[in-house]
Design a protein around this nucleic acid. Structure first.
Lengths: 143, 143
DNA sequence: TTGAATTCGGACAAATCAATCCGAAAATAT
DNA sequence: ATATTTTCGGATTGATTTGTCCGAATTCAA
């Protein structure tokens, strides 16, 4: 469904979010260990998230990644997905047709329209806050 | 959502199905042209569909691919998808966790469970017959 | 029975995605 | 200032997916 990069991106940003509830930054090494991801590859993905302004970073000693507490409430799952995989998953034709539209649809256009709009709605409505509470209470896991 | 191979597979098998409404077989060349797919690659995918017993083939002059008319009513979209992409799209964890289950779920387990079960239901309930009627009446297209 | 038409199968090539390596830049602490 | 710690960025490698090539096997028709 998502690229590997996007999977790591979601896990990494959730972990950073969780840690950002208390002050201090999280280092790459710590993130990669927490989510069992390859360190160097994870670094690339974190950079994408920084550029997308979802997480922030600071170099040097005591540096690392963090999320602004006042920005946290606004972050939704869809932000991370779009930052890394783009929006082709919502807009592209399920059968790869170049020109697929309401006007000239592929055979499964209607069926997939429903699935994908519900996927999009779900991603738009799923806040980091909600996902973090599961992690905080030990009901869900990142590895 | 699906691999390129699966996209071609769906289009190819729908085209073969459509042609199988009237007698005679369809040659690879014709299929590839009809769905704008690379011929040699499409051949590989057709072979997978033959092995999965969704379509049938015959070598030699006047040979080609076809679907048995009496088998047509039973074919669902999910058959083609599973034959080519397998069922990881339904069972695998959305975040790639090795051990993700009801007992020990990833943070998005519940949200994706809903999406994927509705995807599965849709694929199980979408018959070739239904998709072909759109093609026959010129309301939907394969390229 | 021979030749042509077709699918079948394996090896190969190209493109994309995943992951690594390494040095540069920035921030901090001493 | 200098050394150290960290992120940043580009080049490279490896794996998987996508796509090509070509000869073998099968079927049919003359």
């Amino acid at each position: 469904m998502f690229s590997k990069a996007c999977e790591y991106g979601i896990k990494a940003s959730l972990f950073v979010a969780q840690r950002s509830e208390s002050p201090g930054k999280v280092r790459l090494q710590e993130i990669a260990k927490a989510i069992s991801s390859p360190e160097a590859f994870t670094a690339k993905i974190l950079q994408q998230l920084v550029k997308a302004n979802i997480i922030h970073s600071r170099k040097g000693p005591n540096g690392g990644f963090y999320i602004e507490l006042n920005e946290l409430p606004g972050i939704k799952l869809i932000d991370v997905v779009v930052a890394i995989d783009g929006d082709k998953i919502f807009h592209g034709c399920a059968l790869g047709l170049e020109e697929c539209s309401e006007k000239s649809p592929c055979p499964v256009h209607e069926q997939f329209g429903i699935i994908r709009s519900s996927l999009k709605t779900m991603l738009e409505n799923t806040s980091f806050a909600a996902l973090m509470s599961g992690l905080d209470s030990g009901l869900t896991f990142l590895k």
